[in-house]
């Protein structure tokens, strides 16, 4: 009945969304945004033993204008925060952020005057990666999860719809302090 039957063999049909997601996820260009200890583990992930090249991610771009993934690797200080936002703004859309390590995710052990308590105060974060610093395997896992997220992301009207739904859900969500249960 459908279009499929009229096609010659050897063709594969998919949605534009899936095709775009597949293409996007396979060539993510991370910006070098090494800040502290996590940056060393990020470099290790790119080097021989862990070999990020297997996922098409080994080319760390020096210029944010050529990058679409920002791996915030390390603690973000109050002095660095405006710079970080500027680099993020310079990256072309669509762009993603991995917050690598506890310091970038929540301030971690440095709960003090100098450190921004979570990079999500400055830029929207797609993946939070715990660990101090996270092992290279953990970073790769975060990247694979991000690939999955990119693959399933929506386009056009659907993207707007998804964003609106996410916002509504976030507004309705129960604040952490009001949740009951174990300290988890």
């Amino acid at each position: 009945m459908g279009l499929e039957e009229k096609l010659p063999s050897g063709f594969l049909l998919t949605t534009v969304e899936q095709a775009a997601g597949w293409v996007r996820k396979a060539s993510v260009f991370p910006a070098t945004f090494g800040l502290a200890c996590c940056a060393i583990e990020m470099m290790t992930t790119g080097a021989g033993r862990y070999d990020l090249a297997r996922f098409g991610m080994e080319v760390f771009r020096g210029s944010p204008r050529q990058a679409d993934l920002m791996i915030v690797a390390g603690r973000v200080s109050q002095k660095m925060a405006p710079v970080l936002r500027q680099v993020y703004d310079q990256m072309p859309s669509p762009k993603w952020v991995i917050s690598m390590g506890v310091c970038a995710s929540s301030g971690g052990m440095f709960n003090n005057y100098a450190i921004v308590q979570g990079v999500d105060h400055i830029v929207p974060v797609d993946i939070y990666l715990p660990g101090c610093p996270p092992r290279p395997e953990m970073l790769m896992d975060a990247i694979l999860k991000l690939h999955h997220k990119i693959q399933t992301s929506k386009l056009g009207v659907n993207a707007e719809e998804a964003a609106r739904e996410a916002e509504e859900a976030a507004l309705k969500a129960l604040p952490t302090i009001e949740m009951k249960g174990l300290l988890r």
């Binding site: 200080s77 440095f110 005057y113």
Partner: peptide
Amino acid sequence: IGYLHTGIEKN
């Protein structure tokens, strides 16, 4: 410098 000042000495 100072872009990675973490306040460790105070902590």
